[in-house]
């Protein structure tokens, strides 16, 4: 870059005041674009666009000022939470497939016993029980400051 400057030993001509023909052409191009955009728009389009933008802004405002939600976002950023979310989504999809394919559950005591003998059922009950104990512990923890201050 510096060599290029050194090559030219004459000072650059002073820039002309005002706008040259090239700039004018660009300006007119820009003006055509704006005019075209204006002609393409209608009151309805402007109204719909602004309504969408407006509702979006309101939603964003509500979301960003919701402290619980912001903490939740923070939690969800952890890799294991993201894995869990993915697993949950996959499970939901698989469940919906299985339910569509599978036979309707048998009623009565016999049906119950058959269901309880299934290892998947036992594993599911374990999952729910572990989830329940964590949820209960977390809820107790979030209540704790209030109960101590009162």
């Amino acid at each position: 870059m510096t060599s290029q400057i050194e090559v030219s030993d004459r000072p650059a001509p002073p820039s002309e005041p005002g706008v040259g023909p090239a700039e004018l052409a660009r300006l007119s191009e820009l003006a055509t674009l704006v005019t075209a955009a204006q002609d393409a728009m209608s009151d309805d389009i402007v109204t719909r666009l602004s309504a969408a933008l407006n509702e979006g802004m309101i939603l964003l405002d509500r979301l960003t000022r919701n402290q619980a939600l912001m903490r939740l976002l923070h939690t969800l950023e952890r890799a294991e939470c993201q894995n869990l979310l993915e697993a949950l989504a996959e499970a939901l999809a698989a469940t919906s497939r299985d339910l569509a394919k599978g036979r309707a559950a048998d009623g009565g005591l016999g049906g119950w016993v058959r269901l309880l003998r299934d290892p998947d059922t036992c594993e599911t009950l374990r999952l729910v029980s572990v989830l329940g104990s964590h949820l209960s512990r977390n809820l107790q923890a979030s209540r704790a400051p209030d109960s101590s201050s009162s």
Binding site: D43, T47, S50, N54, I58
Partner: peptide, 8 residues
């Protein structure tokens, strides 16, 4: 027109 929506 936009303001009519942004009012909210």
């Amino acid at each position: 027109m936009s303001y009519n929506q942004m009012y909210w």
